[in-house]
Design a protein around this nucleic acid. Structure first.
Lengths: 343, 343
DNA sequence: TTGAAAGCGCTAACAT
DNA sequence: ATGTTAGCGCTTTCAA
């Protein structure tokens, strides 16, 4: 293994000079810098990560905790994770992958051992068991998601309430008066994963304000479940002329069932989804949708973390950042035709 | 920060004794061990990861490189990654997440700096740019996937050729004589991602051996693409009575299109998929399928890595491990009814 | 603008 | 069964 000392000898300078060439923490004359750089290249020197972490108390690693459970739309998780990793690299950091399995103690472990300098948590629940470890002075952390009480925490998420409101605005603007919501799987609500409830809140509030009827049914993504929920909705509210879907796996079953029962989209019923762009674009009817900006979420989480690490916002910058939802109109929504759904 | 030296002082022993209590690398008397343990707990001591890595030349970290691209079934990727992370933890290791973005040099970086002791590569292609770095003495590595020339490499994958053969056996056994294959997206073939070609090889070989007709069409998962491919197949081979699908995103569109054109599954046509169990179980018709054992792949990759790291198989154990495919019969396959597909 | 040297916290000989 | 001690490779004062 090539060490810094060898580089120094090869370049005819002291170890500290090599170190400073690398870190840029003090001015180095141009000729010296050149010689050192040349030696580094020639010898193929790579600084030892552990030695660096020991001497500087900075590991240049952040930990990313992903959920074990997988009843959220999984590709979003991976996309966020990848965005976190690539963004971290642009700051010279690497990402350690933690799963929920070890529980909150994993945070303590990687953080207490100096393995990771900071933490990003995905799929945060309204009342998350990991939160107590993060209040106050604890390790720098950013949450992707919004807990019930974000006081003293650093959070990034899509503004799901605004997303719900946006869906209602779009549909009400087209003239729809009765909207049905095919929600996330019951498990999502049971766990109080914030996003589902926040979307629903936004839907309800805006529907009430605009005098539009709103019927909500949780639904897991299986074909049978969607069929059941759809039947109930049609039975209880025959006047429903539009659907909002938050469960991506329910999208195709819903479209298939509507087709099969002779309901044309968007002529007879409109469908609006809250889902990743990729899902909306590739659906059997391209969906009018509010995008879930996975990459942006990952990116922003890392940026906020580094804002804290570098003290740009003050050492304990805290607060909530909600990304504004964007609704893209595609082929699945249009004005109601006045035909009753059951017609 | 609590150091080992403080623990030693608190317990009234030397630093090395504390170290050996922790590592178990030499016998310690029961009373001493107890005292040390107590001090560790009381002081909340956690060994410094960097110091450990420096002194021992072992970081206890393995790197996992996931592809940036995402035209494979993404949930499988995440499931493998999570399985890798949890399995690594059972060996006391953590996992560093690398994306393809940095290219092969990322391997050099994490490995050359001593950050990671070993590497697991996902989504390996037949002729992968990362392979040259891994031949010979290079850092211990395991590939999930099978390159064209696995000589000197350590690989784990599903035996996709056998999976293809299994599908043909199942369908031919039911009496089908003409089978159509709805393959992966054209991009998968263009990149020579091994699994698609190997499945196809297995399908062809077995079909030829059993005298069954086989028609293969690549297909991305969009509804329109599936519709086009299906139309072509029906046009070219009206006698087709069974489909094998390897592209998970094409499953629902295919089922929907078959329904829409009045073809009952499995009465009129059988469908067999190569896909994760979750997809097969939740399809609108539960699918007879060969499972993609994501967890098992991740687990085996890690186990093989540690077999190498600990020298259990000799320091440069190498070779290919192909997991035997398992076909589960569900509702989507049955004997042909003798009605022509176009009937 | 550069060097010398003292650690960072731990492991692993080498002693006893 | 336990203690002593010399590094591991780097960062960062303190000096010049």
């Amino acid at each position: 293994m090539v060490t810094l000392a060898e580089v120094a000898r090869h370049a005819g300078v002291s170890a500290s000079t090599v170190s400073y060439v690398l870190s840029g923490k003090r001015p180095i004359s141009d000729p010296t810098r050149r010689r050192v750089r040349a030696s580094i290249d020639q010898l193929g020197y790579q600084p030892h990560a552990g030695a660096r972490a020991l001497a500087s108390s900075r590991s240049r690693i952040i930990a990313l905790m992903v959920p074990l459970r997988t009843d959220m739309y999984v590709p979003v998780m991976l996309e966020i994770a990848v965005a976190v990793a690539t963004t971290a690299r642009t700051h010279g950091y690497d990402v350690l992958l933690l799963t929920g399995e070890e529980g909150p103690s994993a945070l303590r472990r990687v953080t207490g051992s100096g393995l990771a300098e900071a933490v990003i948590l995905m799929d945060v629940q309204l009342d998350d068991g990991r939160l107590p470890l993060l209040r106050g002075a604890a390790p720098p952390a950013v949450l992707v998601g919004l807990p019930a009480d974000p006081a003293g925490l650093n959070c990034v998420d899509l503004d799901f309430a605004a997303a719900g409101a946006l869906c209602v605005d779009h549909l009400a603007g087209l003239g729809h008066r009765e909207i049905a919501v095919v929600g996330g799987s019951p498990g999502v609500y049971a766990r109080h994963t914030g996003f589902a409830e926040r979307t629903l809140g936004g839907l309800r509030e805006r529907a009430a304000r605009r005098g539009v009827g709103l019927l909500h049914r949780p639904c897991d993504g299986s074909h049978d479940a969607v069929a059941g929920v759809l039947a109930r909705i049609l039975d209880e509210r025959p006047a429903v002329s539009a659907f909002v879907v938050q469960n991506e796996t329910a999208v195709e079953p819903l479209l298939a069932l509507l087709r099969r029962t002779g309901r044309a989209v968007p002529e007879d019923v409109s469908v609006v989804a809250v889902c990743p762009e990729a899902v909306a674009e590739r659906a059997s009817v391209p969906l009018t949708s509010v995008a879930i900006p996975a990459q942006e979420l990952g990116r922003r989480a890392v940026e906020r973390l580094f804002a804290r690490l570098t003290g740009a916002d003050g050492p304990d910058a805290t607060g909530v950042e909600l990304l504004a939802p964007v609704l893209t109109v595609r082929a699945s929504s249009g004005p109601p035709q006045g035909r009753a759904l059951t017609g």
